[in-house]
């Protein structure tokens, strides 16, 4: 059964369609990049899958069942800018939030949850920062805290919304190594990604998106000039200078 199976998903804000009849499914154990121009609906796609924005039509299945029934299988890394980092809480506390779905109502996180959260922080190299107030962390560190929170969710399918924004090169490599580790454990990771130059290096599969789905498949098959032209349209002139390099090798 496919970890993510989407058919005919349409999302509209105020009658303007943001996503149109997106239909795809992805195989298990892949690292999948979601690529497309600004406003192409990349984040909206993830939010639609997770039920954060209402869909106008279509169905979403996670391992064959609606998302609501499969919540514990899904981990989520929202965009870093979506929260107020001056909130009175520390890194460990934020990571513990990843356990809330497992803990259930009214109960407080226990020793086991704290252990899992600490392990997650350790994995992203942030163990020493557990007690830090989150506003005292750098952008890259905040991103890693969010990543650790998703790890603490102990999920099978992960959705990450631009996890590399404002992250230095070294951290980006560390995050990619971590994602590959997840992949090796048979988990599926979908990542909204901006930097076309690293797509080939990072992702097994690529989903090209511009309101509708342009292409999906193994990166070497779908990440072609032709498809990129379809995705980015008139913006390709800019694209040529930036991305031509990888294609020459084909």
């Amino acid at each position: 059964m496919n970890p993510v199976d989407i058919s005919n998903v349409t999302v509209a804000y105020d009658r303007k369609p943001v996503l149109q009849e997106v239909t795809f499914n992805v195989p298990e154990g892949k690292l999948i990049g979601i690529v497309g121009p600004n406003g192409a609906g990349k984040s909206t796609l993830i939010k639609a899958i997770l039920g954060l924005v209402p869909t106008a039509s279509g169905t979403v299945r996670i391992y064959g069942k609606p998302y609501k029934a499969q919540r514990k299988l899904v981990g989520y890394v929202p965009q870093r800018g979506s929260v107020d980092w001056d909130f009175p809480t520390n890194a460990l506390d934020v990571v513990l939030m990843g356990r809330y779905g497992h803990i259930g109502w009214f109960k407080r996180p226990g020793k086991k949850d704290t252990k899992i959260a600490m392990q997650a922080l350790d994995k992203v190299g942030m163990k020493e920062y557990a007690d830090r107030q989150i506003s005292q962390l750098s952008g890259g560190q905040q991103q890693r805290v969010f990543l650790a929170r998703a790890l603490a969710q102990d999920a099978t399918v992960y959705f990450m919304d631009e996890p590399f924004v404002g992250v230095d090169a070294a951290t980006e490599k560390a995050i990619i190594a971590l994602l590959n580790e997840l992949k090796a454990q048979g988990k599926t990771v979908l990542v909204v990604h901006h930097d076309l130059q690293t797509v080939k290096e990072y992702f097994d599969w690529t989903l090209l998106l511009n309101k509708r789905q342009v292409a999906l498949g193994p990166t070497e098959e779908v990440f072609t000039i032709d498809n990129l032209q379809k995705t980015y349209g008139g913006r390709l002139a800019f694209l040529d200078q930036q991305v031509n390099q990888p294609f020459v090798q084909q």
């Binding site: 997770l50 039920g51 609501k68 919540r71 989520y76 929202p78 934020v94 939030m97 969710q153």
Partner: peptide, 10 residues
Amino acid sequence: FDRQFAKGIG
């Protein structure tokens, strides 16, 4: 703190 994540976990 994080309404979206809260919604995401149900």
